[in-house]
């Protein structure tokens, strides 16, 4: 559950960057939607952290680990997507 939230958040953050917009969507997004994505991303990350904090110390440790995994997944999918494009 937290992992999905983190994954969504990081994906939004990733998509708010021009370079990755080209990788994943083939074209850059308008500035406004980039900003919206960035806000959504941070909000999702903050929400997941808040959930973890409310669940106690073990959940916070899990959150940190899940952050690493989710970022790894997003980075790997960026690489794969850009490799497919000529």
């Amino acid at each position: 559950m937290t992992l999905l939230l983190i994954l969504g958040g990081l994906l939004c953050l990733c998509l708010s960057m021009t370079r990755h917009q080209r990788d994943l969507l083939a074209h850059a997004l308008p500035k406004r939607s980039s900003q919206a994505l960035r806000c959504c991303g941070w909000a999702a990350l903050c929400l997941s952290l808040a959930l973890a904090v409310s669940d106690g110390p073990l959940a916070i440790l899990c959150w940190i680990g899940e952050l690493s995994i989710a970022a790894l997944i997003v980075a790997a999918s960026c690489t794969l997507a850009s490799a497919r494009r000529p």
Binding site: L10, L13, C14, M17, R19, H20, I64, G65, L67, S68, A71, L72, V74, A75, A76, C78, T79, S82, A83
Partner: peptide, 30 residues
């Protein structure tokens, strides 16, 4: 943050730097 998700394979030195950065940043808290 700009290179947070960036890994460009098959580019020699550039790729090793990317891999080093990504692995380092992701595992930084740990």
């Amino acid at each position: 943050f700009a290179d947070f998700f960036t890994f460009r394979p098959r580019k020699g030195q550039r790729s090793w730097l990317d891999a080093h950065n990504v692995a380092g940043v992701l595992a930084l808290p740990f």
